Measured scan of single mutants.
Amino acid sequence: FDIYVVTADYLPLGAEQDAITLREGQYVEVLDAAHPLRWLVRTKPTKSSPSRQGWVSPAYLDRRL
């Protein structure tokens, strides 16, 4: 999967189903980028939180090589 970094805090609107909150600087794996406005991502697990999966706007993501 492609690795992206979150460029700004992402707080989903209440109406968005299956969306997750992301923090600036967080790394995520993009699982599904087929839709231009919503990408399915999975967060990297940390010592304090397990990995999470949900939909985010790709405008908040920047690809890492």
Rank of each mutant, 00 (worst) to 15 (best):
F1W: 11
F1G: 10
F1D: 06
D2P: 15
I3M: 09
I3R: 04
Y4L: 03
Y4G: 01
Y4N: 01
V5Y: 13
V5M: 09
V5E: 05
V5D: 01
V5K: 07
V6F: 02
V6H: 00
V6K: 00
V6N: 00
T7M: 09
T7L: 12
T7K: 11
T7A: 06
A8V: 08
A8C: 10
A8N: 07
A8M: 14
D9E: 06
D9L: 05
D9V: 04
D9Q: 05
D9F: 04
D9Y: 04
D9S: 06
Y10L: 05
Y10E: 02
Y10P: 02
Y10H: 07
Y10S: 03
Y10K: 03
L11P: 14
L11R: 11
L11S: 12
L11K: 12
P12S: 07
P12G: 07
P12I: 09
P12K: 06
P12H: 06
P12F: 07
G14D: 15
G14V: 12
G14Q: 13
A15R: 07
A15G: 14
A15I: 12
A15F: 13
E16M: 09
E16P: 08
E16A: 09
E16H: 09
E16K: 06
E16G: 11
E16D: 13
E16N: 09
Q17I: 14
Q17W: 13
Q17C: 10
Q17S: 13
Q17L: 13
D18T: 06
D18Y: 08
D18Q: 07
A19E: 11
I20H: 03
I20Q: 03
I20V: 07
I20R: 02
I20T: 03
I20C: 04
I20A: 03
T21M: 13
T21V: 12
T21F: 14
T21W: 15
T21C: 14
T21P: 14
L22E: 00
L22Q: 01
L22N: 01
L22F: 04
R23P: 03
R23A: 08
R23Q: 10
E24V: 15
E24I: 14
G25N: 03
G25Y: 03
Q26C: 05
Q26E: 15
Q26W: 11
Q26A: 06
Q26L: 04
Q26P: 00
Y27D: 04
Y27P: 03
V28C: 03
V28F: 02
V28M: 01
E29H: 07
E29W: 15
V30H: 01
V30M: 02
V30P: 00
V30Y: 01
V30F: 01
V30K: 01
V30W: 01
L31M: 07
L31C: 03
L31V: 07
L31A: 01
D32T: 04
D32R: 04
D32H: 06
D32V: 07
D32F: 08
A33N: 14
A33C: 15
A33P: 06
A33R: 14
A34R: 15
A34V: 09
H35T: 09
H35S: 15
H35D: 15
P36W: 04
P36Q: 07
P36E: 09
P36N: 06
P36I: 05
P36F: 04
P36H: 07
L37G: 12
L37F: 11
R38Q: 06
W39I: 01
W39L: 01
L40E: 03
L40T: 00
L40G: 00
L40W: 10
V41D: 00
V41P: 00
R42L: 04
R42Y: 02
R42E: 03
R42P: 00
R42W: 02
T43E: 03
T43W: 07
T43Y: 06
T43L: 07
K44Y: 15
K44R: 14
K44G: 06
K44A: 12
P45H: 07
P45C: 09
P45I: 04
P45N: 06
P45E: 12
T46K: 05
T46V: 05
T46E: 10
T46H: 07
K47W: 11
K47S: 13
K47E: 14
K47L: 13
S48A: 11
S48C: 12
S48H: 14
S48T: 13
S48F: 13
S49Y: 10
S49K: 09
S49H: 12
S49D: 13
S49W: 09
S49F: 11
P50M: 07
P50K: 07
P50N: 06
S51F: 06
S51Q: 08
S51P: 09
R52D: 06
R52Q: 14
R52F: 10
R52W: 12
Q53I: 15
Q53D: 06
G54T: 05
G54L: 11
G54S: 03
W55Y: 10
W55L: 03
V56H: 01
V56T: 04
V56W: 01
V56Y: 01
V56P: 00
S57E: 08
S57K: 05
S57W: 03
S57T: 04
S57H: 11
S57I: 05
S57F: 04
P58W: 03
P58I: 04
P58M: 04
P58T: 05
P58A: 06
P58G: 02
A59W: 07
A59P: 02
A59I: 12
Y60I: 10
Y60V: 11
Y60G: 04
L61I: 04
L61C: 02
L61A: 00
D62N: 10
D62W: 07
D62Y: 09
R63E: 07
R63V: 10
R63A: 09
R63T: 07
R63D: 06
R63W: 11
R64C: 15
R64F: 15
L65N: 12
L65D: 14
